[in-house]
Design a protein around this nucleic acid. Sequence first.
DNA 1: CATCCGTGGTT
DNA 2: TAACCAAGGAT
Length: 342
Amino acid sequence: MSVQTSGSIDSFAARLLGWYDRSARALPWRIPPGSDAVPDPYRVWMAEIMLQQTTVAAVAGYFERFVARWPTVADLAAADDADVMAAWAGLGYYARARNLLACARAVARDHGGHFPDSEAGLRALPGVGDYTAAAVAAIAFGRPAVVIDANIERVIARHRLIEIPLPAAKRAIRAELAPLVPRGRPGDFAQALMDLGATICTPRAPACGLCPLMADCAARGRADIERLPVKPAKKAKPQRYGVAHWIERDDAIWLVRRPDKGMLGGMRALPGGAWTDVPPAESGIAQVDHGFTHFDLRLTLVARESEDAAGEGEWWPLSALDAAGLPTLYRKLTDKMRERIS
DNA sequence: CATCCGTGGTT
DNA sequence: TAACCAAGGAT
């Protein structure tokens, strides 16, 4: 079915959805176009939270494990914090995991175990911002919400040749996109734009020859299409340093939990001092370099006696270290130590 | 509006 | 290989 607009070119949405019907990626959380299956808002929400600033490839395994272990929002709401945080370990941006639990419990307690079916209702939940509220409203509930993620920003900025730098460009992008959203398939429309941005209208070397929207793309053929959308320059990342303590006793090591706020908040960790701008004097028994979003960290591992296992913490068997759910920074160190011990 | 918040893949 | 980037949200 093609929808005609002015001229002889099918409407933006018709071309996009036609392409999506042929080319949609098969993803664990996605109902294929044309299926009569009913979306599960819990699974849609779970996927959207995990996909925030995170690639499809990285999310797939986590999504499968989470929905297998906690099949419903009620199951997740009843889970132990430590189990959820450990299951999230390695995926990054750990505030998402804390908000995931807070959101599940809010849905269970305040909404009778059902996700709100409006954009405004969803937006009020922890960890749900403008993008996620619109995405869940459109994909799970068929609401004609205006969904804008980084893929869609890029597609629209190019198609309409919006040269305003982000994030200020978002207002213009929304104004251009809103009238294009079809009442009939808003969820597929949003997912189609994201698939298009991920596979054809890519940041570099876009495959314009394969694009269903090429005919009226304002950036088509421009040598500088990769410049769009215009983004602000990034600041240099400072180098920081830290010391972690390896405290071993009876084939177990001492682990602590980091405070909820700040880096790696709420996650199990090796004990250690605060991170600083100055390299430590000690040489240590191991060392890792780890890049965070806004600084690089060199972490030195220093052996300590079991008497230094003070305050809150737990002796964790070395044989079960995988189950501790350490974030990648510490996982790098424990992997090095495990190689050495075995 | 700017900053903070992870990680791994791609170029 | 260093830089860039990803289905952003909270503050």
